[in-house]
Amino acid sequence: MATTKWALDPMHSELQFKVKHLMITTVTGSFNDFSAELITESEDFDGATVSFKAGVDSVDTGNGDRDGHLKSGDFFNADEFPSITFSSTSFSKAGGDYKLTGDLTIKDVTKPVTLDVEFGGTVTDLYGQNKAGFSISGKFNRTDFGLTWNAALETGGVVVSEEVRILGELQFVKQA
């Protein structure tokens, strides 16, 4: 079978991250500028190649001061490292769904991560476009990527958890 390219449909996709704040609540953020593509070699997505890129300057937590802090040298250092990237090393079936493993690069640090991928299915939309949907989830330790800023609380604990959860709802369009 020929190689098939699937491009992200940004109007029907979102990428979020969640971290604990003060160890008692969860703050949700997103990237408003991101792209992704899938390259498949078969009728299903087993063995697909996945690439992803997010613009750090598009980070959005609903709070301008917090967003500015995340873009600063304490966290992402958007001026020096404007993008977060992911490149798959494996996309394999796990039951009816998939496991996605690849190299995540934040700042100048690249580490392997594995994400769970729930396959939503494929459908032809009202315009005749073939679409595929995926829900992605996983987690990583932010300090592994040099995102080490934190402050201790008088009551114990820290301001920001080390664990970051990733949640994505991604819709792709099959390219001709």
Rank of each mutant, 00 (worst) to 15 (best):
I84K: 13
N32D: 15
V56F: 00
D97H: 07
F76S: 11
D60E: 13
F91S: 11
K131M: 10
F145C: 04
G121L: 05
L104D: 06
K107N: 10
V160N: 01
P82L: 09
F91R: 10
T89Y: 09
A78S: 15
S42K: 08
E14H: 12
V164H: 11
T3K: 14
V50P: 02
K18I: 14
D74C: 05
D44P: 07
D97M: 01
A94N: 15
V27P: 01
T124C: 09
D144E: 05
N150R: 03
G128H: 04
V117L: 00
N32W: 08
I136G: 08
F81N: 15
A36V: 01
D116N: 07
F31P: 00
F17A: 05
A176R: 10
A36W: 00
G168N: 01
F52V: 03
E154F: 09
D65V: 13
G168Y: 00
G102K: 12
H69K: 11
G128D: 09
F140S: 09
T61E: 04
T101K: 15
F75K: 11
R142G: 06
A152L: 12
E41Y: 08
K131E: 00
S135C: 07
S87Q: 14
T143H: 07
T148L: 03
K71W: 02
L8R: 04
S30H: 09
S92W: 06
E154Y: 07
P82I: 11
K99Q: 15
N150G: 04
V159P: 08
T3C: 05
V173H: 05
T105Q: 13
I136P: 03
N32S: 13
E154C: 04
E162P: 02
F34L: 01
T155P: 03
G47V: 01
S58R: 01
A132S: 10
T26Y: 12
E41W: 03
I24L: 14
L104K: 04
D44H: 03
T3Y: 10
F172V: 12
I106H: 12
D60Q: 09
D103Y: 08
K53F: 04
F134E: 03
G29H: 01
V50A: 08
T110A: 12
V160C: 04
G102Q: 13
T155M: 10
A54R: 02
G128T: 02
A48W: 00
I106P: 10
